[in-house]
Write a protein that binds this DNA or RNA. Sequence first.
DNA 1: TTGACACATTCGTAATTACTTATATAATTG
DNA 2: CAATTATATAAGTAATTACGAATGTGTCAA
Lengths: 109, 109
Amino acid sequence: MPRRPAHATVYQAIADPTRRAMLELLGTGERSAGELGAPTRLTQPAVSQHLRVLREAGLVTQRKVGRHRIYALQAAPLAGVADWVRYFEQFWDRRLTRLGSFLDRSTRQ
Amino acid sequence: MPRRPAHATVYQAIADPTRRAMLELLGTGERSAGELGAPTRLTQPAVSQHLRVLREAGLVTQRKVGRHRIYALQAAPLAGVADWVRYFEQFWDRRLTRLGSFLDRSTRQ
DNA sequence: TTGACACATTCGTAATTACTTATATAATTG
DNA sequence: CAATTATATAAGTAATTACGAATGTGTCAA
């Protein structure tokens, strides 16, 4: 039995800090592959491979402009992650919530 | 030059579906290591290793009760992930936002 | 105390990942 | 058209990961 589907999930794609940085940069606007790689010390192929992972996770799209490949952020797949994480918000908020309820009760007295 | 800090980040910890399932289960209350492993087909050591990753990421704590290890969710480290993902919300919401503005404008006429 | 239980840890292995070097492709410029 | 630029893909490698088998450790029960 193969251990897991061979292709990049969104969670796996964002597990890597380099790829997270790329997505952040794309949040400020479209960028060419070269521009996305510039902030790193990686070789060009390494950059290209990270971009492929992001593509396969559906987090970016590509379009050709001359000899450049312009990448654009596709944030939609992150919505699932947001939902998943949001579920846990109640737990890290609990302390604040309790404090809130306490304050509510005390001010009512 | 070593490629990356050897120890589990939160992002890496939640990249694995088994570990995400464990965290979800812990969201419903504390569980022993055995209970956390039960839904999976993994061997006991494999479960124990996943739990170690979650521990090292600070996502769970352990306490001994008799011969059981009771695990509890520590959601706080997920807040960072939530913040990171929330930044991108503006991008997947944009379409809805535009629709919203459009509706606002049309109903005003 | 002896055995069974509930776990963790160690070790070996196969799969996967992140990288580099080398090479291919397609567009642009001289 | 030849050289250059921007990028992708292929091939090889080292590190890391996910796992199972074997083993260790503390706790409970008879």
